[in-house]
Design a protein around this nucleic acid. Structure first.
Lengths: 230, 230
DNA sequence: GCAAAAGTGTTTGGTCTACACCCATGA
DNA sequence: TCATGGGTGTAGACCAAACACTTTTGC
């Protein structure tokens, strides 16, 4: 993932000889942590944050570029991700003249949290982002991703990435409640989700609460679409 | 809209010294012509076609870049457009190593057809595209745009760009029938579209058919969203 | 009068919402 | 036996699909 010229040399070349923006990638990683939707952000200088990013490595696909950034920040090698949008305006970033191809993903699990190097990266609650000092247009990119996440989870099995292999329907519902930021009727949710043919009983029972609960798993290995859940 | 280096010089620079793809823009322009969904494609050499495109002019916004390509091909100065996707893979285009930021739009009207220079550009029916020789991955980009168009027209007033200021509800319905490629019940469509608060009677009557019809116009000047029409 | 297309209404069935009740277990 | 959360059912509101009849004009 190296380029033939050093980054500073590239910048120099661009700014002096070219009128073309440098393609880079910004990634928005959402997770559910302590019952809140959070974003992974790079610490930047003293108290500022930016999205994890890199200059696009042109010998690799966009997905490989995403994976490289993700792995560097979190240790996770692969995750379902989706292209978000390509942001550019001549005024976007006066220092570097950078075009941003953005991707986003929803990730969960203990391995993910353990893999994060919290000296370099922070987990910021989405609902507390306005208090943070997020640089450039990265706050807008995060909001854009947040909206996309909301609309996608309604008709895709995005929630798969947050849950363990086997889960209770109530756990699935909680993912939806946090991502959509609203309460969902327990009984109606259950009826609907079972009618969609996306999850199946595993036969196992989770006895960790007073009344044990049936465990379910997603039928498909891959993220797939279905008729709107709401 | 010029760059400091000539295109050939840029290409050379990229291929020899840089590992970074050149940002370019491909645009997918849909229109309804003789009752069919069509795409505007550049003639390329003898019998091949490509999407209208250009190397990204970095002093201008993405939308300005789109407008410049559109105007060159069709004489139209402004139209509602939407970013589609950014395509890139190292193998995408071996000659030029080009990253494609794609936009799409739905355009209509006689001015549009009159503005097209048909010596440079062809109008190709979407349902006959498989017979055409469309180069690179541009066929996939068109398909991607076609799907986006289908899903967007269901909850946005995209059809506005195809119709005259005042139109019959039956004309609006025909736009939906062609874009969605299915028959729609006349009566149910009328009820639904009137309940959405997106169009209003203008008070004028169109007497061009046997039985005259009320004319309607969109309430909003801008393209807006509404609850799904289907 | 007849064809063509507009305008309006009804019936039906399914789906979403808001609920209530009972059940299995741990403490 | 009580608290906690799981499992299941039902009535009413609402919405969408299928469909029929009447109206207004040109020829």
């Amino acid at each position: 993932m190296n380029s033939l010229l050093k980054p500073e040399e590239m910048m120099d070349l661009w700014n002096t000889k070219l009128s073309i923006p440098i393609p880079s990638m910004d990634i928005v990683i959402f997770t559910l942590y302590k019952w809140h939707l959070c974003v992974v952000l790079d610490k930047f200088e003293w108290n500022a944050h930016v999205l994890p990013w890199n200059i696009l490595a042109g010998w690799y696909s966009l997905e490989d570029n995403f994976d490289a950034i993700l792995e560097r920040k979190t240790g996770i090698k692969w995750i379902y991700k989706e292209q978000l949008y390509t942001f550019w305006s001549p005024a976007r970033d006066k220092r570097w003249h950078v075009l941003s191809i953005s991707y986003y993903a929803l990730v969960g699990g203990q391995d993910f949290i353990n893999g994060i190097d919290f000296t370099k990266v922070d987990l910021i609650r989405y609902d507390e982002l306005s208090k943070a000092n997020v640089l450039y247009d990265h706050k807008e990119i995060i909001d854009y991703a947040r909206n996309r996440l909301k609309s996608k989870i309604i008709y895709t099995t995005t929630a798969k990435e947050i849950l363990k292999k086997e889960f209770r329907i109530s756990e699935l519902r909680e993912v939806y409640e946090i991502v959509l930021d609203k309460e969902i009727d327990r009984r109606n949710f259950q009826k609907k989700v079972l009618s969609l043919n996306i999850i199946q009983e595993t036969g196992n029972i989770d006895k960790s609460t007073n009344r044990p609960a049936k465990l379910y798993s997603f039928i498909d290995d891959k993220i797939r679409t279905f008729d709107d859940i709401f």
